[in-house]
Amino acid sequence: MSSATVTWALSTLARQGLTPLGAEKARGFTETGFIVEEADKPDAARVTVTARFTGQDKYDHWGESHKLANRLMGVLEENGAGFEEIEGHEPNCVFDVFPPADRAAEK
């Protein structure tokens, strides 16, 4: 079940001081940040990183959102996670995260 991976990803990121946005803020592009939710694939969590939208196809903090996505991936990878980047979700950076093999084997 991917909810266990969501919990694992959130706690792993929280240990590094990385806190997700509320879903409303992320979906409304009111702040640069990220959310973690269940993915369509078993044992995966979907991470979406957004940049703040200011109108007329302009996104503030575009570079910061990409740096944040790389930082999130780095933290999760250091803890044994695997990834699959998801294309076609611009202007968001979206990827599925899979738990370390030893955690997936616990199920």
Results as ranks from 00 to 15, higher is better:
42 P>I: 10
22 G>S: 11
4 A>L: 15
81 A>M: 09
79 N>P: 03
63 G>P: 01
88 G>L: 00
12 T>L: 12
95 F>Y: 11
14 A>N: 15
62 W>C: 00
70 N>Y: 12
78 E>D: 14
65 S>V: 00
74 G>H: 09
11 S>Y: 07
107 K>F: 13
82 G>V: 01
44 A>H: 14
65 S>L: 01
25 K>D: 07
31 E>K: 14
64 E>S: 11
98 F>T: 10
63 G>W: 11
70 N>G: 10
48 T>S: 15
61 H>K: 10
101 A>W: 14
58 K>F: 03
50 T>S: 15
57 D>C: 00
31 E>V: 02
80 G>W: 15
17 G>M: 04
52 R>F: 02
9 A>Y: 08
46 R>S: 02
8 W>Q: 13
35 I>C: 08
73 M>K: 14
9 A>R: 13
27 R>H: 13
32 T>L: 07
86 I>W: 00
48 T>C: 10
57 D>R: 07
21 L>V: 10
60 D>N: 14
41 K>R: 14
36 V>T: 10
50 T>V: 15
27 R>A: 13
34 F>W: 12
84 E>W: 00
98 F>N: 04
46 R>H: 01
95 F>V: 03
98 F>M: 13
60 D>G: 07
97 V>Q: 10
103 R>H: 05
13 L>W: 06
84 E>S: 05
70 N>C: 04
72 L>G: 02
89 H>S: 03
82 G>C: 01
15 R>I: 00
37 E>Q: 13
92 N>L: 06
49 V>N: 13
29 F>E: 08
23 A>T: 14
78 E>S: 12
32 T>F: 07
38 E>S: 15
26 A>L: 12
44 A>R: 14
31 E>G: 02
33 G>C: 06
10 L>I: 06
64 E>M: 10
104 A>M: 05
37 E>P: 00
93 C>D: 06
51 A>M: 08
3 S>A: 06
35 I>E: 12
46 R>C: 02
80 G>D: 15
52 R>V: 03
107 K>D: 11
54 T>R: 09
66 H>D: 02
44 A>C: 12
27 R>I: 05
105 A>M: 11
39 A>L: 00
6 V>A: 07
81 A>W: 03
99 P>K: 04
71 R>M: 09
34 F>Q: 11
36 V>S: 10
23 A>P: 11
105 A>T: 08
30 T>Y: 08
92 N>P: 02
78 E>Q: 13
70 N>W: 11
94 V>H: 08
2 S>N: 13
59 Y>F: 15
105 A>H: 11
81 A>N: 08
73 M>T: 02
